[in-house]
């Protein structure tokens, strides 16, 4: 059993690590710094940390001004407030001018749990990846979050990093390969490709293990960078297995499932089953219950794999 750790904890720790190396980093928070873990930065660098108050549109605007004066800016709040509330500010004040603003949001997805629908961001990846210049990364665990942070500070321009609220299994270690824009195959197979993003990798791997018992060899690919997506790797795997299941803790409209389908429909049209939120709002409940109720659990992935294999040529 893998150790459980928050992706947001990886964020808070990486911020301090990066802040020590680079005095140009400024962190903004819209009064949720304790929850996003951005506030950790304030304990070390109070002069470079600003809680703008409950004012997300202004936070993005401040970030744009800081960035066009040479700062590397991290702006954090919950995913729904980081992307939905200031969407147009992100588009016009940040992305249009390709400014160096990294939006790192916690509380993405249904596993926010008890807080319910208003706080469960299920559309953020869709509305971020459609903006030109914006790049989107959804790390699978604590370790990968830290690696993501170390990489994105090296590249100027806007990023959206989606993290969760819960504790998730740590599936990677400091030596696991990580490159922005590159998918990673965690398990090789030939009958079906299961592509997951974020913390759903754990479910995808468990589903593959169950499928193996039924003589189905599933290839499991983790796509942390949803934009720019690793089209080459996805196409190569799909050409081999001839069918794909996508798994994400996000609406199937506009998220990983859409992004993968966009790749496949132009270069390798094969049947795709999309596991995710099926055009619904969330509800209160524990993360485990919600994953079950919204049909995103391991048995759901297994069933989807079998179904999509049936649809193969």
């Amino acid at each position: 059993m893998a150790e459980l750790k928050g992706t947001r904890d990886g964020y808070g720790e990486a911020l301090i690590e990066l802040g020590e190396k680079d005095s140009n980093i400024v962190v903004l928070d819209a009064d949720l710094g304790s929850s996003t873990r951005a506030r950790k930065f304030a304990t070390k660098f109070p002069e470079r940390y600003f809680n703008v108050g409950v004012a997300e549109q202004n936070m993005i605007g401040i970030a744009s001004g800081l960035a066009c004066t040479g700062k590397t800016v991290f702006a954090s709040t919950f995913a729904i407030f980081a992307t939905g509330r200031p969407w147009e500010q992100i588009r016009n004040s940040v992305c249009f001018s390709n400014l160096n603003v990294k939006i790192v949001a916690s509380h993405g997805g249904i596993t926010v749990g008890a807080d319910g629908a208003s706080h469960q961001s299920l559309e953020d990846v869709a509305i971020m990846r459609c903006i030109p210049n914006m790049k989107v990364i959804v790390p699978c665990d604590y370790e990968e979050t830290k690696k993501t942070m170390r990489e994105i500070v090296k590249v100027k321009g806007p990023y959206y990093i989606r993290l969760g609220r819960a504790k998730y299994p740590v599936l990677t270690n400091p030596d696991t390969p990580f490159e922005v824009g590159k998918g990673h195959i965690f398990r090789k197979g030939k009958h079906v490709t299961i592509i997951s993003t974020g913390t759903m990798l754990d479910h995808a791997l468990k589903a593959a293990a169950q499928l193996e018992k039924q003589d189905v060899q599933a290839e499991v690919m983790h796509i942390h960078t949803i934009k720019p997506i690793d089209a080459e790797l996805i196409a190569a795997s799909a050409k081999k297995t001839r069918c794909v299941v996508t798994v994400e803790e996000h609406s199937v409209i506009g998220g990983l499932g859409s992004a993968v389908s966009e790749v496949l429909c132009s270069c390798c049209p094969v049947p795709v089953e999309r596991i995710g939120i099926q055009d619904k709002f969330g509800r209160s409940g524990s993360p485990e219950v919600l994953i079950k109720v919204y049909n995103m659990d391991v048995p759901d992935i297994v069933e989807a794999a079998k179904k999509v294999i049936q649809k193969k040529d």
Binding site: I60, G61, S64, G65, L66, C68, T69, N92
Partner: peptide, 12 residues
């Protein structure tokens, strides 16, 4: 949006 950006510049 511009006043927020101006604040960011002044803050920098």
């Amino acid at each position: 949006q511009g006043l927020s950006a101006a604040c960011g510049i002044a803050l920098a």
